[in-house]
Amino acid sequence: MSEFFAMDGYAIFLWPAYLVTLIAILANVMLARRAHAEAKQEARRRFAIEDEGSSP
């Protein structure tokens, strides 16, 4: 198993490359979900302002 990870010497280049890609994939999932949540939050705030604003 360990020689698999060694990647006959290329390990220090190969695994960082995969790690960076994994980070990018996870980061974008998290960023996308947070963007959506924030957008909903802002929408709630806007409606709050409008409801209180237009009611006589």
Binding site: A32, R33, A35, H36, A39, A43, R44, R46, F47
Partner: peptide
Amino acid sequence: AILLVRLRAEILRRERTASWIREVL
């Protein structure tokens, strides 16, 4: 998949206070 999630956020931002958003929220 990422695009679709972000798209929903961007649509909400642009639709501001359109009435259909009330149900979504």
